[in-house]
Write a protein that binds this DNA or RNA. Structure first.
Lengths: 152, 152
DNA sequence: CTGCAAGTTAAAGTTGACTTCAGGTCAAGC
DNA sequence: GCTTGACCTGAAGTCAACTTTAACTTGCAG
């Protein structure tokens, strides 16, 4: 009879929606930990599911794995994280999303007066001009999803 | 004395904001064309600048190079594209941006009632649950920027 | 006519987030 | 005790959109 508190990779994969290969990858990257059986197979504790839920949500908001690892690193090691812990480390997400929404809205509205008329001038077009673009998104929006970040 | 209608890579790079390597890449990928000197060097016509402005704008809105190539392919070859041509092929961008904005707004508002409280339940959390996520973004938003697309 | 900045190519490298593969090992039900 | 599906590892592959490198050629000012 299996220890009900120990989950195999397949079980965690199924319940979290992440592929087993992704779970192993996250462990290598320091986002997850697992115990091992005598033979070296992974056995996960139930709380990795919550950690994975956090990872999925964070990815969804646009955080990189590096940022997620840093956030997870601020969780206390001595005890099981509380709701307050999770709430704390996701507190900044709202303003991040707000900024993304603002940037997209500005872009959309610029579209009306620029692309809509077919001008697309390199000198004047607010949508295509690199400088205008940089000015619009500025340094305050470094966390925009890749396609919205300034071209590099 | 140089032919004033023929631009070198360096000139196009400077005036478009794209790196010379990107211009060569775009040509290989079929997004751009150039004439050649007897010795094999590229000479661009002035209208590539408008084409590049379009490419930058499209990338900004979140189109892939494949999509951009397809869009550019619908331009008439027999004549210089008019404003109406450019306007036509960028007509869908607004709804695309609208959809992205809607998706982000929904995500942000879900955040308030979900992450805000620290629940982050794999079963119930609208932000982290893969199924809810798929349902929210649906098939109508396949063009969302990568970080917002459904996890694969 | 020469010097050298600017151009050319094919091929390989980059980044992030994983997946796939090859070649074995483990564990659990019969 | 044996079979077989699940698991292990390290290394390599994938994708997009370019950039970088190496080795070589062109074009124009002086």
């Amino acid at each position: 009879m299996k220890d009900t508190d120990q989950l195999t990779v397949a079980e965690v994969a199924k319940r979290s929606g992440f592929a087993a290969s992704a779970l192993r990858f996250y462990e290598r990257e320091g986002l997850l930990t697992a115990h091992r059986t005598g033979g070296g197979q992974r056995r996960y504790e139930r709380h990795v599911l919550r950690r994975l839920a956090f990872i999925r949500a964070a990815r969804h908001v646009g955080l990189s794995l590096d940022e997620i690892r840093d956030a997870l690193a601020t969780l206390p090691e001595s005890r099981t994280p509380t709701k307050a812990d999770w709430a704390r480390i996701s507190r900044g997400w709202r303003s991040r999303l707000d900024a993304e929404i603002t940037a997209l809205t500005t872009l959309r509205d610029g579209l009306e007066s620029c692309i809509g008329c077919g001008c697309l001038s390199l000198q004047r077009c607010a949508i295509s001009n690199p400088d205008d673009t940089a000015a619009r998104f500025g340094s305050g929006a470094l966390y925009l999803p890749q396609p919205l970040r300034e071209d590099h």
